[in-house]
Amino acid sequence: MKRTAIVMRRMAVPFQSALTLTTRSHTTLMSPPLVSLDLPDIWPPNSAHFHFPVNCSNEHRAVEINGRLIAEEIRSGIASDVKRMKKSIGKVPGLAVVMVGQRRDSQTYVRNKIKACEEVGIISTTTQLPGDCTEEQVVNALSRFNVDPSIHGILVQLPLPQHLDEGKILDVLSLEKDVDGFHPLIMGSLAMKGREPLFIPCTPKGCIELLIRSGVEIMGKKAVVVGRSNIVGLPTSLLLQRHHATVSVVHAFTENPEQLTCEADIVITAAGVPNLIRGNWLKPGAVVIDVGTNPVEDPSCEHGYYLIGDVCYEEAVRVVSAITPVPGGVGPMTIAMLLSNTLDSAKRAYDFT
Rank of each mutant, 00 (worst) to 15 (best):
V296Q: 07
Y306F: 15
A322H: 15
P299K: 10
I323Y: 13
Y306M: 03
H303E: 12
P299W: 05
Y306I: 01
T324G: 11
P299L: 10
R318M: 03
C312F: 09
Y305W: 08
L307T: 12
V320T: 11
E297H: 09
D310L: 04
E302W: 00
V326D: 08
C301L: 05
I323V: 11
P299R: 12
S321F: 04
P299Q: 12
Y313K: 04
R318Y: 02
D298H: 09
P295E: 06
P295F: 08
V319A: 00
V326A: 03
A322M: 14
V311C: 09
D310N: 11
D298G: 08
A316D: 09
E302V: 03
V320N: 04
N294C: 13
D298R: 03
E314K: 09
C312Q: 06
V317E: 14
H303A: 13
T324L: 12
G328M: 05
P299M: 10
L307M: 15
V319K: 00
P325E: 12
S300H: 02
I323L: 13
V326M: 04
V311R: 08
V317K: 14
C312H: 15
C312N: 14
C312P: 00
Y305N: 03
I308N: 02
G309H: 14
E315W: 04
A322F: 12
P327L: 09
P299I: 09
S300Q: 07
E315N: 06
V311H: 13
R318P: 02
G328I: 08
D310Q: 06
I323P: 07
H303T: 11
Y313Q: 04
V320Y: 11
N294A: 00
I308M: 06
P325T: 14
E315Y: 03
Y306D: 08
P325L: 14
V296H: 10
P325S: 15
E315H: 03
V320A: 11
A316R: 03
E302G: 00
A316Y: 10
V317M: 07
V326F: 05
S321T: 02
D298Q: 01
V317F: 12
G309L: 05
T324S: 12
P327V: 10
I308F: 08
E315M: 02
I323S: 05
A322E: 11
D298Y: 05
G328R: 07
C312D: 11
G309A: 10
A322D: 06
V296L: 06
A316I: 06
N294Y: 06
Y305A: 03
A316W: 06
P295K: 11
L307A: 05
P327G: 07
I308Y: 09
R318L: 00
P325V: 15
T324M: 13
E315A: 01
V296G: 02
E314A: 02
C312W: 06
R318E: 06
E302M: 00
Y306N: 05
Y313D: 04
G328H: 10
I323G: 12
A316E: 05
E314V: 04
A322W: 14
V319F: 00
Y305S: 07
V317P: 06
A322C: 06
D310K: 04
T324P: 14
V296P: 01
R318V: 01
G309C: 07
G304N: 05
V311W: 09
Y313R: 10
L307Y: 15
P325H: 12
